[in-house]
Amino acid sequence: MGKARDFLISGLVLLLGRRRRRVRRGERERVVVPEAPRNEGAELLAVFLLLASAACAVAFIVVYAVDSLPGHTQLLGLSLGLAFCFLAAALIVTGQRLVPNEELEDKYPEREHEAEQELVVQVIEESGLTRRRLLLGALAASGGAIGLALLTPLASFGPALRVSRFYRTPWSRGRRLVDEHGKPYRASDIEQDNFYTAFPEGADKEDFASPLLLVRLPTDRLQLPPENAGYDVDGIVAFSKICTHAGCAITLYRAPLFQPNEPPPALVCPCHYSTFDPSRGGTVTFGPAGRKLPMLPLEVDRVGFLLARGNFDEPVGPSWWGVRLKEPTT
């Protein structure tokens, strides 16, 4: 009881004390010089806009709660967006019409504090540390070494020093070519003016070195360079599907239907339009790719299924520093 009374009295004293100290309005000098403009119209408008904003926000909640409304995302965006837009309008009306419109001058901050700079330098110099060159050198060595040590575990992020995997492909002599669903391709499945995606039987399809492009060209139009001689099976040629420029899948095939007026057949990457000539072993005819498309030698087994007759003639995928140093491996 006594405590409560003490609180009450002290609270009263505090309140009254505050009253007395308070400076009356009108006695003090104004800081904000122009009076806030009396603008009932603008105030009414701002109030109306704020209420509209609140209404839209409530509408958002209602739309969220009611499942049966059509165009759910649109109504949600509309209501929430409008709630913010009305709020913005109200604030702009407030800023332009309802608060004092001051444009004041002030000094830019001091450009520099020469005395303070000097003091900072003095404190550091008088510590005596700057003269101990050996100590500072050793400190730098320690800091550098610790920094290096802390960075070293980054090497665990990946096998940075082993790039042999970049040469590896799942292709080898005798591996069958299958389609996306694992069905083996027969040579007779491959028609002219069409193109097919093939994978090594049983391998990971997402591996960059897996997917192949298959096209059939008229044998008399085939002008394979000497190193690719005999890579085809009756005009069927196979290339890596991954562009040697930046690693996109090549999904465009330009097959001329009106020879000889139309440009020759071409495999085109849709990312940067590197263009490769399948009849010449995948050489680049246009676009940024700096390297021919890797070609896979083919053969057919006795039943007529398409098989690889070896590995690609070039490493697969975008170029890196070692792409011309080694042949692909299995």
Partner: peptide, 15 residues
């Protein structure tokens, strides 16, 4: 007001 306007326009676009 500018913040509310940016948010408003972005939610309108998003919806």
């Amino acid at each position: 007001g500018l913040f509310a306007a940016v948010a408003g326009v972005l939610f309108l676009l998003g919806g």
